[in-house]
Design a binder for these strands. Structure first.
Lengths: 355, 355
DNA sequence: ATTAGCACTCAAAAATGGTGAGTGCTAATA
DNA sequence: TATTAGCACTCACCATTTTTGAGTGCTAAT
């Protein structure tokens, strides 16, 4: 490196670096100079390549797992590769996912998306429910038996929450009716934020002698909305993680699996991806870049889908750093497009004549 | 073996066999004659033990993984050991599970049981919902928006099922009311079996012009009850499976995990344990004894819990054959007792004054 | 019936050695 | 000046051998 020590990669280096990484993605073996010498169209001898590789190593793009072995990409290397992919013309090919028939309940739909994604990519996948501020669409209180009131709360997106409420003595039928009217009058269209002390007071005063019970009911409802607001995450294909022993020893893999089962950590990740929006909604975390401790040896690719109301959710995969980023990104894009479509249609259908 | 070739185990052999297995359970290493010679209180030289061990091997209780190694138990050996445990005085010690506070919803309760069990035993655990014939306790139909009817169905045990039903045009309010009365009149207390063609016909005739819609509603309700009747299974601690590499290579482990995720196979197993009842509700499957193909290298221990109505469910663990059976059985017994209690109390509370 | 003693076995660990892919460096070349 | 050919060197990987030690079965003595 005489010319210019702090210069950026010149065209040739780029080509070589890409070739190295592409090759490594295919084979999983450290790639040597001779291989590249033939692999690329620029006719260079292995010696020249070796010099260039030495430079690339010095710059931190590649590394030797041990002396006298070929090179493998560093996180920085992967990052370069992934970024360079974006500049290429993208032909979003069709992914097979006719599986995605119309599903009524959000939960089933998302679970299915997770499955399809896992099936298509062979990685561990996660799908988050859209994070919009849920507002109450409909509340129904019913006396189930002498001691149990059932509050059924439907929030938009037709997510249904049930909440059993213990009461000491059964309410009379007409009182249940009254309550229902009261509740719906005040709460329809309300989000969690809207339910403030003032509103509660007003409602209590209107409930008269049943105010104490109302207390109970409120708690139930708040719990339910709270519940609905919680970031729900569905995962699939977690056992795929076992297929990539490069992720390290069993104990690490096991920790990874636990992180997945747990889902708490995942929700951080997902919140980040949703908030840090960018052009096409695709986020790629490589190795150390990931915010989840246990996944520093993996890569994470996520995509954001949007609902017409503006709510957003995330679908994503987690796999080894050595992954077919092109294909993964493609699949994710396709799925988000499909999801967006489903929601758009759902919207059209759902809202006709109601608002 | 001169005395009597086909004789049962004499007292000494039993003692030795137990010692071998107990030791193996602890260490996981093949156990040799010298170890036993010191381990037991019967003062015998290693040579004598060796002779006895040769006999035990011939009888199929233990085996050498290779010549000139110690012995490890066969499935038959484990079986003997486990059976002999039963005869001992059992002091059911307390397990720590104050975690089990009162939980309202069955689903949460069972999930928690699975967790507690996994936490206490460090094995993969499964818990099945009780399998009683669910009967409808309460049905509520409501118009959620212009196109969606929500059927809320409560079956006993306060399990709530929601079912969105698409309709082409909204029902008038009073019709919804009518439907509710109609539905509850006919269906309250009915099990899935009770809903036959005749009943449907009768109801249809009473529904008058809305009969076609009824069709739709029925399907929804049948689906829901069906759903409720399905054997639900909750698992936990599945990653514990990774901790026991003795279960074989990664690919086998991975298959096992998939079986667990899938839950279909598990339901067979659980049905069997529930039906093949025995004295204390404990079932132990060792190795080849298990009905699930993928688990031939594991042991499965299950316990049955009972609800006052007679419904039964299963909790169980899956681990390596080399497992602390005593502790596991203990933990299971404790948990079932606790579960039985919870349900009994629930019953008392629930049924007062209703029937 | 039990035991001491001894030769034998064999898995697992450690030592050994060969192979080859790949490197860095130097000197020759275009 | 950039490229290349050539060469010595490194080191993971593999297969083979050696060593070790726990454990056995058998026999003869108690």
């Amino acid at each position: 490196m005489r010319k210019d020590d702090c210069m950026e990669l010149d065209e040739r280096k780029k080509k070589i670096l890409k070739a190295i990484i592409a090759n490594y993605l295919e084979t999983g073996e450290p790639v040597g100079s001779r291989t590249i010498s033939k692999y690329t169209d620029l006719n260079l001898s292995s010696a020249t390549i070796r010099n260039e590789m030495a430079d690339l190593e010095e710059m931190g793009y590649i590394i030797q797992p041990h002396t006298s072995a070929g090179r493998i990409p560093t996180d920085t290397g992967y990052r370069f590769y992934v970024d360079s992919l974006k500049e290429e013309k993208e032909e979003v090919e069709e992914t097979k996912s006719a599986l995605l028939e119309r599903v009524d309940r959000m939960e089933l739909l998302l679970k299915q998306v997770a499955k399809v994604l896992a099936y298509n990519t062979n990685y561990a996948t996660m799908v988050s429910a859209p994070n919009y501020k849920k507002t109450v669409k409909f509340i129904q209180l019913s006396q189930v038996d002498s001691e149990n009131l059932l509050a059924v709360i439907v929030v938009d997106g037709n997510i249904v929450k049930n909440q059993m409420i213990r009461v000491n003595e059964p309410l009379e039928n007409e009182n249940v009716l009254k309550f229902n009217i009261l509740l719906n009058t005040f709460l329809q269209g309300a989000s969690l934020d809207d339910i403030n002390l003032e509103m509660i007071q007003t409602m209590k005063s209107q409930a008269g002698e049943y105010a104490p019970i109302l207390e109970n009911i409120f708690q139930g409802i708040i719990d339910a909305i709270h519940d609905a607001n919680e970031l729900e995450i569905y995962t699939s294909g977690t056992t795929n993680i076992l297929k990539y022993p490069e992720l390290g020893d069993i104990s690490k893999t096991s920790e990874l699996l636990e992180t997945f089962e747990d889902k708490n950590e995942l929700s951080h990740l997902i919140e980040e991806t949703v908030n840090k929006d960018n052009e096409d909604g695709i986020h790629i975390y490589i190795g150390e870049e990931t915010p989840v401790e246990n996944m520093k040896d993996c890569s994470i690719v996520t995509a954001t889908y949007k609902m017409p109301e503006g709510a957003k959710g995330t679908i994503g995969i987690i796999g080894p750093k050595r992954m077919d980023y092109k294909k993964v990104v493609n699949t994710l894009k396709n799925l988000t497009i499909e999801l967006d479509d489903i929601f758009k249609k759902g919207k059209e259908v759902n809202d006709d004549g109601q608002k």
